[in-house]
Design a binder for these strands. Structure first.
Length: 225
DNA sequence: GCGACAG
DNA sequence: ATCTTGTCGC
């Protein structure tokens, strides 16, 4: 896993906004990948005893959903949580975890929005662009945008719209369970992204990738405490 | 001015 | 995210 774009992370809020505007121009919104054999799920959690963040990456076989490899990293918080600047808080430890991987995933499912973002550059876009790999944004709650009511059945889908632009899809992954918010990260189309999320969510609300990453990051925090 | 606001 | 009481829906 090689970083294609490197930039400072110890920057001000104003500088972060300018950087988002610059990098957002590099997002590719169409399918640009070959066969997807390995899919990674990522998650980051806050460790309150030492004010650190713990990041976890889990690589799964795209067909069997069996775990192929995992990696974790711990780092100090160096940016506050600001809605719209989420990636500047969570990506530093995540990059460290990716650096430890022996396998390069062909697709990364992110815990957070992608294109469904005020400046169309959520965490999934940021991660995708700096590594230049296909990514999907997958959020449990809405950052912005409006949508119509959704059928209660698994597979129900509705466009998420902001200022007359479709910025993502609201997707029901389980019948009568709250839908999730899917958006483009990088090098993937919205429809292909939703196909993968449904395939990766046969049993639970969230994709298996996200579940495994969440489990790993929490067990890591418990173990280190 | 007030409310909303990924994790 | 995380903590936690009261309220609501099934």
């Amino acid at each position: 896993m090689d970083l294609i774009i490197k930039h400072d992370w110890n920057i001000s809020e104003v500088e972060a906004l300018a950087l988002q505007k610059e990098l957002a121009a590099k997002v590719v919104k169409t399918d640009q990948f070959n066969e997807i054999k390995l899919i990674a799920g990522v998650d980051v959690a806050y460790k309150k005893d030492n004010d650190n963040l713990v990041a976890a990456v889990v690589v799964l076989d795209a067909n069997s959903l069996e775990i192929v490899e995992t990696a974790t990293a711990e780092d100090k918080v160096q940016f506050p949580y600001i809605p719209g600047l989420f990636s500047f808080r969570e990506l530093p430890p995540l990059i460290q975890a990716f650096a430890k991987l022996q396998h390069s995933p062909d697709l990364v499912v992110c815990d957070g929005q992608g294109y469904a973002h005020p400046r169309r550059f959520g965490l999934a876009c940021h991660l995708g662009v700096i590594f230049d790999i296909p990514t999907i944004g997958c959020g449990k709650t809405r950052l912005l945008g409006e949508h119509q009511d959704l059928s209660p059945i698994r597979g129900a889908i509705a466009p998420l719209i902001d200022h007359n632009e479709v910025i993502g899809n609201v997707l029901r992954t389980q019948t009568r369970i709250n839908p999730i918010y899917v958006s483009i990260g990088h090098r993937i189309s919205l429809s292909t992204a939703c196909d993968w999320i449904l395939k990766l969510s046969p049993k639970y609300r969230l994709p298996e990738t996200t579940r495994q990453a969440d489990q790993l990051v929490n067990s890591t925090i418990k173990q280190l405490s």
